[in-house]
Computed example of a mutant assay.
Amino acid sequence: MKDCMSDDMKRKISEHPCYSPEAQHKFGRLHLAVAPSCNIQCNYCDRKFDCVNESRPGVTSEVLSPQEALERTTRILEQNPYISVIGIAGPGDPLDNDETFETFRLIREKFPEITLCISTNGLLLPDRFDELLESNVETLTVTMNAFDPEIQKEIISMVYYGGKKYEGREAAELLIQKQLEGIEKAVEAGMTVKINTVLIPGINDKHIVDLAKKMNELGVYIMNVMPLINQAAFADIVPPTDQERKVIQDACAPYVKQMRHCRQCRSDAYGLIGKDLSVEKQPRKKEFKPITISKNDEKN
């Protein structure tokens, strides 16, 4: 694949701790938990927001308003100037929450040089893509676990889209269609795209190399094969060993660059990767209940 990346984007990648293994030791990231609503239900996902003792995706000690997110950003950047990336990764799906875009607007106005990043399941990526461009988001992560609907239907139990609930193969086909369409649009627009893929033994482990080949065709920059955290409907599945994951990463590497230093961060993580300061320094200010149904579809 021809390298059409601008010098400015190459510099930003070199300073992005998730996209560059060298950057993880020098540059930090700040996740802003402003997006509680989610529009799909993955069988490995158990989103307990008010849980400071767990360190995994989908967990935060509080959900922030956009203004609170700006205040937190201002405070943390003053104390930790090595942070180069501001990201929104939940605890739900950022694109299912209007607060995501208001937060980006506030951050961009005050910190125009910071790199903005988002992590999404991709269902609404084509629908809200223009808003991402307007927000100057340059690095994008899409969680994609399969492009075969027969496999995907085993990983998700439902999808909410356009005021309708989808299940089974229909849900899987819809999600895959939107993910592929959104990834293609992002690459064509010059965004740097990362794919997160949860390695689920017995379900998608034999499919991941084919997924890597597909991502190569689309021009994805980097792929992060993450080990299953066995919980929720997948509580009885034994997670892959480090060696099992490495074998798959090595098999995928000829097709897509592999991220091997992921620590499966919380939705409110900040600091260097592997040295999350959020649990230690962020006090819990308010109580709230988990939201598992899309706010946008719940209204319909």
Rank of each mutant, 00 (worst) to 15 (best):
I76K: 01
R47V: 06
V52S: 15
I86E: 10
Y44E: 08
V52P: 14
P81L: 05
C38G: 09
P36V: 04
F49G: 00
N80E: 14
L64Q: 06
P66N: 08
V52E: 13
P81W: 13
Y82T: 06
Q41E: 15
G87R: 07
C38K: 05
Q41V: 11
P66W: 03
L64A: 10
A35P: 02
L77M: 10
K48S: 11
Q79F: 05
R72Y: 11
H31Q: 05
Q79T: 15
S55H: 14
I76H: 01
V85K: 03
V85Y: 08
L32C: 11
E71C: 06
N80C: 12
R72A: 15
K48C: 09
L30W: 04
G87M: 12
P57S: 07
D50V: 12
P66F: 02
N80V: 06
T74G: 03
I40M: 12
R47T: 09
C51A: 14
T74Q: 03
G58Y: 08
N43M: 13
A69W: 01
R72H: 13
F49W: 02
A89Q: 08
P66M: 00
I40L: 13
L32H: 07
I83K: 10
V85A: 06
A89D: 06
E71H: 06
H31I: 01
S61C: 09
T74N: 13
E54S: 12
D46S: 09
A89G: 01
E54Q: 04
A89P: 11
A35R: 07
V59C: 00
A89C: 07
P57K: 01
V63G: 08
V63Q: 02
L64I: 11
S61Q: 12
C51W: 12
G87E: 14
L70S: 06
E78V: 09
V52L: 15
V59T: 06
C42K: 02
